[in-house]
Write a protein that binds this DNA or RNA. Structure first.
Lengths: 163, 163
DNA sequence: ATAGTTATATCACGCACTTATACAAAGGTT
DNA sequence: AACCTTTGTATAAGTGCGTGATATAACTAT
């Protein structure tokens, strides 16, 4: 909300600028629109009729960070605990995840991804990667380079979210 | 333009070099993972309890490209025609869109976004832009610069999808 | 033990999608 | 003209996936 007004530094300085200046000079609405459009793009690249967005995201979380308690998982994915209970039941029935007991606390359910879950993620990822690659191949080289150059930064951006 | 200075890529100027070579040198799986993570990021930034993802996407389509026939809209959004009929009914009841008749063809329903729909998109976008800005502000300047530099390319990437 | 808290499960419900089908308008054939 | 076929939208029935309220089992403290 607050206008930062960091633009006081000379915007023409080419060498080591490109920090918040660049960002402030950009319309923030345009920033949101670009991210919305990427979001829609990835959503359309999603294999339909597969598993739900939340299911896929949950599997990815389990893949990235290892086993989670059920309620932790619910909080991380932004759904209620009953929703996660049902989701884990579905994943378990599909053989994609497993419920494990916590020896230290009999109430706790620890959820871990199963091999079939990892394989499903791999398959989805391969399909999406292929489509993305095709799309990128249709872009001008400079655009491809800009996107590839931004990938590590986008990864670090995603790291900033609580997960 | 901004010197990106991304660590994992060629530090040379992106304009002339870094075409498909850069892309091929990258693990395609890593490409998919990065896009997945951005997807999840934007999804978590979504105002919850608002309207559905499809509803928001449909409103954005109507905002970007103007009125659509109902069945065209269904095809564009990747849902069935009955689903779009129901969605448009909901949007209409909420005052976010309008059904109009086509004078040339009595069967056709033309859908257009209403003022309240535009305002809702503006509000959502502003909220998301604010959160995105905060996240970006926490990144190192070089990362911010890389992401900002990639936005036009990402826009053109999104243009490649049929919409 | 008893009471209170915590972790998960279950219940009742609603939204948003699906397929199958109905209905109305347009177009073509004779 | 009347008749079929095609096309665009709506309706119906069923399902997946979410919600809030509440039940049940296990841990904790006194």
């Amino acid at each position: 909300m607050a206008e930062t007004g960091i633009d006081s530094t000379d915007p023409a300085d080419p060498g080591e600028v490109a920090g918040l200046d660049e960002l402030d000079r950009l319309d923030r609405t345009q920033l949101a629109i670009s991210f919305e459009r990427v979001f829609t793009l990835v959503r359309r690249l999603n294999p339909q009729g597969d598993i739900s967005l939340t299911a896929a995201s949950t599997l990815r979380t389990l893949e990235r960070h290892g086993p989670y308690r059920l309620s932790e998982l619910a909080a991380t994915e932004g759904v209620t605990q009953p929703a996660m209970t049902q989701l884990v039941s579905r994943l378990e029935k599909a053989g994609l995840a497993q419920r494990c007991a916590d020896p230290a606390d009999g109430r706790v359910v620890v959820v871990r991804i199963a091999d079939a879950g990892r394989e499903l993620l791999l398959a989805r990822r391969a399909a999406r990667a292929e489509k993305l690659y095709e799309l990128l191949s249709a872009l001008p080289p400079a655009d491809r380079a800009a996107i590839v150059a931004a990938l590590p930064a986008l990864d670090r951006l995603a790291d900033l979210l609580p997960s």
